[in-house]
Design a protein around this nucleic acid. Structure first.
Lengths: 215, 215
DNA sequence: CCCGCAATCACCGAATCAGGGGAGGGACCT
DNA sequence: AGGTCCCTCCCCTGATTCGGTGATTGCGGG
């Protein structure tokens, strides 16, 4: 079974050498080679690749934006980013944009063929130095994110509603009119929430609600 | 320059075959081989490795917990996780625990030597299928996370201090004694913060502070 | 030298929140 | 029929916050 590949790179030498390299693998089929991404959607519609090789540095539109567009239009397409930069933000942005792999250009010759095959098998080939940055990113932000089994405080639906109003900055009065219940009822719910979350002030409650994503 | 390596794995065959494999590289020096992680801190203190190979499945304590301990005691040590599982949560947990690389055991023979060398150069070797999971994780959570340039509200250092106290649930009185200033001064700062953040209640303020990461 | 500004402190009245009670109706389970 | 739980509502007392107005110090720039 053959793999349809499209290539975006503004450097002519790179385009030619990659094309040559990939021709050595019979199951690879170059279906499109482009020097810019301005028409990438139309280009892909025409050549229908399985895999896109994308230079991160492209004239006109950045490769990152292009990835975003491509993944939006063709979610099944696997995009392999190629770059000479190891800039943290770019790497991170590309990932958020939906790139499936990320290799440095100085690894290109040796690993490109392997990388494409790994993409085929559902893997995400990544240069180790890039991987390090990705891990660093992931390790740096789990304060708020991820899966950490947050406690379940067993709030009733009504209580959650009240809580979310509070987090949005509403006063008891406003919540009462918002939820069409009496001021005193709001207070009752709030008292319950206080007990359940083990907090002693609205501010604590808001902080806990946001950080534990109870809202 | 030689690389000091320690190995944790409960399977005897694995221990032996990895030891043999690494002996083929003259610059690698096996300084410790252990069948469990219960004494890992003491073990590492004794053998002082540069790199630790850690099986994710270990009796007594999980390899993930061990990584957490190790990175806490010896932050400079690079830990390479080895696993037969591709379980999402385990992978993610290991990363959060501080692992520097992550390879599947069926890639071991072929890539272990390369992986260790890449660790040496500051990379994070990762099996492509693992990398895919990591990317997936990173792509799934950026709602709250990442780098998005949030507004700068030009809070003075003192105001930020007060704000962070508030986010931690302290009352004005408590803040006053915490920061060694008068109750009225706390109020002054709070009023300023109100203006600068364009909010009208403490709850709004806390929500904004957390969501915009001003704390 | 004066101006602006951060940081400090003060007072007052009004509004809101906190914590303690009690109490009734409805749903659901045993 | 009794028990439990959720949602609803009410009162009272005390603590905390809100809004406005004003004042003093000290530091750095024009």
């Amino acid at each position: 079974m053959s793999v349809r590949i499209a290539l975006f790179d503004d450097n002519r030498n790179v385009r030619e050498s990659i094309s040559l390299l990939l021709q050595t693998e019979p199951q690879f089929e170059m279906v499109g080679v482009f020097s810019h991404v301005l028409d990438c959607i139309e280009d892909l519609q025409a050549c229908k690749p399985d895999i896109v090789l994308m230079d991160i540095e492209m004239p006109g539109m950045t490769g990152i934006e292009a990835v975003r567009l491509i993944k939006k239009e063709f979610p099944a397409v696997q995009v392999l980013m190629q770059t000479v930069f190891e800039d943290d933000d770019r790497v991170f942005d590309s990932i958020c944009a939906g790139a499936s792999g990320y290799i440095l250009k100085n690894h290109l010759n040796i690993r490109l063929v392997d990388a494409i095959k790994e993409l085929q098998y559902g893997g995400s080939p990544m240069s180790p130095s890039i991987a390090r940055k990705v891990l660093g990113k992931l390790q740096s932000l789990p304060p708020s994110a991820g899966k950490e089994a947050v406690e379940d405080y067993q709030l009733t639906p009504r209580e959650k509603g009240v809580l979310s109003c509070i987090v949005n900055g509403l006063s008891y009065k406003m919540i009462a009119s918002e939820l069409q219940i009496s001021y005193e009822t709001v207070r009752s719910h709030v008292k319950k929430i206080y007990e359940k979350l083990h907090v002693a002030s609205l501010t604590e409650m808001v902080a806990k609600a946001i950080n534990q994503k109870i809202v």
